Simulated assay, not measured.
Amino acid sequence: MSATVTFDNQVTVAGTGGPVLGDADFRFLRDFVLQHCGIALSDQKRQLVQGRLLRRLRALGLKEFGSYCELLRRDPDSELGDLASAISTNVTSFFRESHHYDLLEQTLLPQWLQQKRRQGDRLRIWSAGCSTGEEPYALAMVLAEALERHGADVDAKILATDLSPQALAGAREGVYSIDKLGGVSAERRRRWFLRGEGSYEGLACIHPRLRELVVIQPLNLLHEWPMSGLFDAIFCRNVVIYFDKPTKERLFRRYAGKLVAEGYLFLGHSESMHGLSDDFDLVGRTVYRKRPA
């Protein structure tokens, strides 16, 4: 095992020359991430942060974590997305937590489409923290099928947002390896994916019809939200798990303000709103409905 040699805040691992995250730099990063991303990093996350940010140092040609911290001080917005992407775990898949999609398909969408068609209103769903696009495209499959099934001439769209530029690039590309389609039924694979050939063998591309339904935009949930209209449902799954309690409370309050009367908020399987908001009622497994005014 190599020894660690420290000179003030410049830390390297003897025998490797690789930088190690010093106390002052870790404190700065922890405060920065909490302020700009709402992510609370405990002392136990220090090695994880060090390991993941080493890749950013290499990509940027930086030799020390101090230089990286200085970059964040000078121009925080330029690196914020890459930093958040590096320290968070983007695990996603098509039709993850399938009971949410079942509720949409069997109950909510038929009701909404009937109502929207009668009132001439629009239908909007927000995938907040869309990662590489599996969630919004799965939502688009269910929505497209519902529009066909119920013959609804309704202005329907899905907004997909994320802070990570790499994740958004993947979502916009809409190309996935075949082994990533495990949650998609054989019928939906045939209907909603274009199978690659030749050099694209083993890949599948999202059908253009689904692309029409999904609008992909960068967004930091802690910053200003430019959307002017309200949403019928918001999917924010496996996102708030990273946030501290005050950030969760503020976020749930803001979500309530962006939902229509009795709109729905979907959280991840390990997330809960218990003790964090009086604006919602639990109506299903990690499914919450906005309380009437």
Rank of each mutant, 00 (worst) to 15 (best):
E187P: 12
G151K: 00
L53E: 08
G129V: 09
R289T: 06
Y242A: 09
D121F: 08
R190M: 08
V240K: 04
A86Q: 05
A84W: 10
G198V: 05
R58K: 11
N90E: 12
H223D: 14
A293T: 03
F252L: 03
G257P: 07
T16Q: 14
A233L: 01
F94P: 08
L265N: 07
G183V: 05
L143G: 03
V184M: 09
F280I: 00
D82L: 14
L210W: 08
K63V: 10
S164W: 06
G81S: 04
E262C: 12
F32E: 07
G263F: 01
E262P: 11
L265R: 01
M1A: 12
G183I: 03
R190L: 12
D43S: 05
Y101V: 07
L259E: 02
R46P: 05
D102H: 12
M273N: 04
R96T: 01
L210D: 02
G18R: 14
L62D: 02
R27C: 03
E224R: 15
A128S: 14
Q114F: 04
E249C: 04
N9R: 08
E135V: 00
D77L: 14
P19C: 15
A146K: 01
Q10F: 10
R191V: 04
W112V: 06
L163A: 14
N220Q: 06
F95S: 03
F252Y: 11
L72M: 06
P110G: 15
L104E: 01
R52I: 13
A40D: 13
R118Q: 11
L123Q: 00
G229V: 06
Q35V: 11
R254E: 09
L143I: 09
D232L: 03
F266H: 00
